[in-house]
Design a binder for these strands. Structure first.
Length: 209
DNA sequence: TCATTAACACGGG
DNA sequence: CCCGTGTTAATGA
């Protein structure tokens, strides 16, 4: 595992720390669709994404979900980070979007590693990027129409899968964006008429990014 | 005005 | 037949 860590983080974290991480952490591969964390579950490990993509959702009391953002290479989830430091329960749900490779660091190591300056920098930087991303989510929910939000969602999927053809049903989108299928079907139809996408059964082809 | 819910028809696998 | 899709009507915020 130390080789993988050096390959990905040698510029970011000092070697001594990488060695320590490799001793206590778990290297894990997950398949697309796997649920990595449920809302309400206790957080025992902090994940760092090596490859692939993870979807992060917020859930309301009735377990309806709203997608927040995608994690990609090198990202860690600051919400989890927060939970690890505070030993709190998860406020979010995480699901692998595609096959992914992650490193899991035990939560109790978080504070121990703070003696390394590079680790503090890494943690603060992670908080920062997550905070910026969350602000974009707030902007999106507060100021953008559904058609813009939907197109952004499709564009993200295209970038993550490196494929113009997205395999997803209207119902799945509706659930992830916390709205109804009727609305998604209608807006998708409008996007199709604007020549931005082309609709197929179980698939959506994104024409303009 | 726009989302949601229910209901229905159509059609591909 | 089952499920995804496209649409409409009624209702409510």
């Amino acid at each position: 595992m130390i080789d993988i860590l050096r390959e990905n983080f040698s510029q970011l974290l000092e070697d001594e720390l990488l060695v320590e991480i490799s001793k206590v952490s778990i290297h894990m591969r997950v398949n697309g669709g796997d649920i990595l964390m449920e809302s309400g579950s206790t957080v025992t490990h902090m994940p760092i994404l090596l490859s692939g993509a993870i979807k992060i959702f917020r859930l309301d009391d009735d377990y309806r979900e709203q997608i927040l953002y995608f994690l990609e290479n090198g990202d860690t989830c600051a919400l989890t980070l927060n939970c690890c430091l505070g030993k709190a329960k998860s406020e979010i749900k995480a699901q692998a979007e595609i096959d992914s490779e992650i490193i899991l660091i035990p939560a109790e190591q978080m504070e121990v590693f703070l003696k390394y300056p590079s680790w503090s920098r890494f943690v603060f930087a992670s908080f920062n990027t997550r905070l910026v991303e969350l602000l974009e989510v707030v902007d999106s929910l507060a100021f953008m129409n559904l058609d813009e939000r939907l197109f952004n969602y499709l564009r993200d999927k295209v970038l993550i899968n490196s494929n113009q053809l997205i395999e997803v049903t209207h119902n799945q989108i509706a659930q992830e964006m916390n709205t109804s299928r009727v609305v998604i079907s209608r807006v998708l139809k409008i996007l199709e008429m604007e020549n931005k996408i082309k609709l197929h059964r179980n698939k959506i082809e994104v024409l303009a990014i």
